[in-house]
């Protein structure tokens, strides 16, 4: 049995409300809140980045896995905001959790899908028998151009998963990927902020790939929405995943547990992986979970997980995602947010 043996999350404590961003740009906060299904988003402090978030999430995953970090054979960090242009994030994580030197590291990129890429590859490495355990991380400190629609959602957070073949808390039953060349969102080299194709990011991009992956994996597995206790989709805002789920035939109650965007925004590579951690926090043995990521450019990875008995002993070993999100929140104003996010240039 191959699957998740440990999982962990990390979300920065700072938040900025939609109203605070609207106040600066003269927009109607209520229409953004209802249109995006979003109240506030997480904001990383100036000392938090993809590496620090990854380390904290990985440590929580290790607590739940209860394994020797020296047995981890690979560490892959998926992000579109790696702190270095050239130098891996994964080596810092590996040294910080005590997994060096006999470990394979790589940084993955695929817009918001980089985290699920890492999950896919680590599972394959464990399944092949090349290594006992492998660590996959999806984390981001995403940026939106000041005044752009993305600024209301682009946030920070990450999730980590240790894959293995023993003491699995959620078994992987099926995977399926759906990709096409679709330029709906991108960032060219040396550019600080990403560009996007406005409404084109919807039907031909997000919905085409999310629905393609979800329908494809359910068809291959011979399953239908009613076979799942929970479903989690990539969350660029709060509205898209609910609409995609409804189109597929999922009920709101199946999607609510993993829907974190309304309270923390779009954590990009951390998005559906973080939603999965919130589901695992309350899941029961036998529950089946559909997870579908989405990365612009474009593609979706689909996963069907089946929760095992071991979930009961693992859940309380590390902070639960929704409790972490609710605890110790610090509201910031737009000026503080702009300073932390490097939006104010001093030289």
């Amino acid at each position: 049995m191959i699957g998740i043996v440990g999982y962990g999350a990390h979300v920065p404590r700072r938040r900025i409300k939609v109203e605070e961003i609207s106040k600066v740009w003269g927009t109607d906060a209520d229409s953004y809140k209802s249109g995006l299904v979003l109240e506030e988003k997480s904001v990383p402090s100036s000392d938090e980045d993809t590496i620090s978030i990854s380390v904290e999430a990985a440590r929580n995953a290790l607590k739940r896995a209860g394994i020797d970090p020296q047995k981890i054979g690979a560490i892959y960090v998926g992000s579109e905001s790696h702190p270095y242009a050239v130098k891996p994030s994964g080596t810092v994580v590996a040294d910080a959790i005590g997994a060096t030197p006999e470990v394979h590291c790589a940084d993955f990129e695929f817009a918001c899908k980089a985290g699920s890429e890492a999950m896919f590859v680590t599972m394959a490495l464990v399944k092949s028998g090349w290594m006992e355990y492998a660590l996959a991380i999806g984390a981001d400190t995403s940026q939106g151009k000041p005044g752009d629609a993305l600024e209301y959602t682009a946030s920070a957070g990450g999730a980590a998963f240790i894959m293995g073949g023993k003491n699995v808390l959620a078994e992987i039953e099926h995977t399926y990927s759906f990709m096409t060349d679709t330029p709906d969102f991108w960032r060219r080299e040396y550019q600080f902020y990403p560009e996007h194709a406005g409404r084109f990011t919807g039907e031909p991009a997000y919905f085409k790939h999310v629905l393609g992956a979800a329908n494809g994996i359910m068809e291959r597995a011979g399953m239908k929405p009613q076979d799942f206790t929970f479903a989690v989709f990539h969350q660029p805002n709060g509205k898209f995943p609910l609409r995609a789920g409804k189109m597929l035939g999922f009920s709101r109650s199946q999607m609510e547990t993993g829907l974190l965007c309304p309270i923390i925004g779009n954590t990009y590579s951390g998005s559906s992986p973080l939603g999965l951690t919130a589901i695992l926090d309350i899941a029961k043995p036998g529950d089946r979970i559909l997870m579908v990521s989405y990365g612009s450019g474009s593609g979706s990875d689909g996963f069907i997980w089946k929760v095992t008995e071991r979930i009961r002993e693992a859940q309380d070993r590390a902070p639960k995602t929704r409790e972490m999100i609710a605890k110790g929140k610090i509201q910031v104003d737009y000026g503080t947010y702009a300073k932390y996010r490097g939006k104010i240039k001093t030289g």
Binding site: E48, S52, R59, A96
Partner: peptide
């Protein structure tokens, strides 16, 4: 307090 991993 807890000790969190941060950029220093």
């Amino acid at each position: 307090v807890s000790l969190e991993f941060r950029k220093i």
